[in-house]
Amino acid sequence: MSYKVIVDSCGELTEEMKRSGYYETASLSIDVDDHHIVDDETFDQKRFLALVAESPNSPKSSCPSPERYMEGYRCDAKRVYAVTLSAELSGSYNSAVLGKNLYHEEYGQKDIYVFNSRSASVGETLIARKIGECEEAGMAFDEVVRTVEDYIESQHTYFVLETLETLRKNGRLKGIKSLVASALNIKPVMGSTPQGTICQLGQARGMKKALEKMVEEVVRGVRHPEEKVLAISHCNCPDRARRVKEMLLEKISPRDVIVLDTAGISSMYAADGGIIVVV
């Protein structure tokens, strides 16, 4: 096996990626009151959402340990890449880097590179897919790193959620001062900054208009859409995701489209009914 890609579990893997044997998930964990949930193949989204709805407290997440990443790097693959949730939102990136340093101390030199996605969810999915495309094209390790870092620079993340409470309570909305009261049914349209933090792009009254506003932002921001893969993830709302896909395809023609249900960490932050778009 010439290469391996480790994606922390905020990034969803497609069925094709799972079957390929090149991709591995490093699981984060979630605590909802006394319930400890590992974000792996056993994650039950409906049960998790029910636990969150019943709890007066905000769920808390924990990133993979450096030792977990180190063990992931310890494999037969000659080149190993890790893709993590934005370093501005989680300790997963720092943990992956420390795991790399521990590996080198314990086992010696190996080509290992950790990508800070500066995104989340399907943003990580697209980055992991890009690594695979570069490897399959026969690029050298350093060329893969440069190409994928350039790809991350060009990537944009957008989202509309039914509630921003989990993000707010967990300190992920620092610097955003103008969020309006949810009692008015105003839904902010959010996005990522080049640094990997969260910003507000706009707002609209009601989810339907907010999604339309998000689509406008996606179309305005995308360059050369025919070269891009459009990725949509949703938390327990496939019909809503399908409508967003249809609205986008009426305006742009990407080379491929991926639609995935959110895994554990993405479900925690997106909350029931949330939609994330990355292109």
Score class of each variant (00 low, 15 high):
residue 97 V to P: 02
residue 148 V to G: 00
residue 257 V to H: 12
residue 81 Y to N: 02
residue 64 P to Q: 09
residue 193 T to A: 13
residue 227 E to I: 06
residue 244 V to P: 01
residue 225 P to W: 06
residue 5 V to C: 03
residue 139 M to L: 15
residue 24 E to Y: 06
residue 237 C to R: 02
residue 160 V to Q: 01
residue 144 V to W: 02
residue 160 V to L: 03
residue 139 M to H: 08
residue 139 M to V: 06
residue 106 E to L: 05
residue 254 P to G: 09
residue 42 T to R: 08
residue 71 E to P: 11
residue 227 E to F: 10
residue 22 Y to D: 10
residue 49 L to R: 04
residue 52 V to I: 12
residue 17 M to T: 08
residue 177 K to F: 15
residue 149 E to N: 14
residue 27 S to A: 12
residue 163 T to F: 12
residue 174 K to E: 07
residue 95 S to D: 03
residue 122 V to H: 01
residue 93 Y to E: 02
residue 202 G to A: 07
residue 48 F to D: 02
residue 204 A to P: 03
residue 215 V to N: 02
residue 37 I to C: 07
residue 93 Y to R: 03
residue 249 L to D: 09
residue 15 E to N: 10
residue 40 D to N: 13
residue 140 A to D: 14
residue 70 M to Y: 09
residue 46 K to A: 15
residue 145 V to L: 06
residue 196 G to E: 02
residue 72 G to L: 02
residue 139 M to Y: 15
residue 245 K to L: 10
residue 118 R to T: 07
residue 117 S to D: 00
residue 88 E to H: 14
residue 200 Q to E: 06
residue 62 S to T: 08
residue 22 Y to N: 14
residue 199 C to N: 12
residue 232 I to A: 04
residue 82 A to Q: 01
residue 111 D to K: 11
residue 45 Q to V: 15
residue 227 E to M: 10
residue 44 D to L: 05
residue 251 K to Y: 14
residue 57 N to G: 10
residue 115 F to Y: 04
residue 255 R to I: 09
residue 181 A to D: 15
residue 217 E to G: 07
residue 156 H to F: 11
residue 235 C to D: 03
residue 113 Y to G: 01
residue 112 I to Y: 01
residue 73 Y to V: 08
residue 162 E to V: 03
residue 202 G to M: 04
residue 95 S to R: 05
residue 2 S to W: 11
residue 48 F to E: 03
residue 56 P to E: 06
residue 166 T to N: 13
residue 202 G to I: 06
residue 46 K to F: 10
residue 210 A to D: 05
residue 211 L to M: 05
residue 274 G to N: 03
residue 3 Y to C: 13
residue 270 A to G: 11
residue 221 G to C: 13
residue 133 E to T: 10
residue 197 T to Q: 04
residue 214 M to H: 02
residue 122 V to K: 02
residue 247 M to V: 09
residue 191 G to F: 07
residue 244 V to M: 04
residue 268 M to G: 01
residue 269 Y to I: 06
residue 27 S to V: 05
residue 100 K to S: 06
residue 132 G to L: 11
residue 246 E to V: 07
residue 95 S to F: 08
residue 10 C to E: 06
residue 238 P to H: 10
residue 183 A to E: 13
residue 128 A to T: 05
residue 108 G to P: 04
residue 178 S to F: 09
residue 190 M to T: 00
residue 3 Y to S: 13
residue 91 G to C: 05
residue 259 V to H: 14
residue 112 I to S: 00
residue 181 A to R: 13
residue 61 S to Y: 08
residue 116 N to M: 06
residue 185 N to F: 09
residue 141 F to A: 04
residue 35 H to W: 14
residue 120 A to R: 01
residue 227 E to P: 09
residue 116 N to Q: 05
residue 106 E to P: 09
residue 259 V to K: 10
residue 124 E to W: 07
residue 207 M to R: 05
residue 150 D to P: 12
residue 262 T to P: 04
residue 188 P to Q: 01
residue 217 E to Y: 11
residue 274 G to W: 02
residue 274 G to Q: 02
residue 253 S to T: 12
residue 69 Y to M: 03
residue 207 M to G: 03
residue 195 Q to C: 11
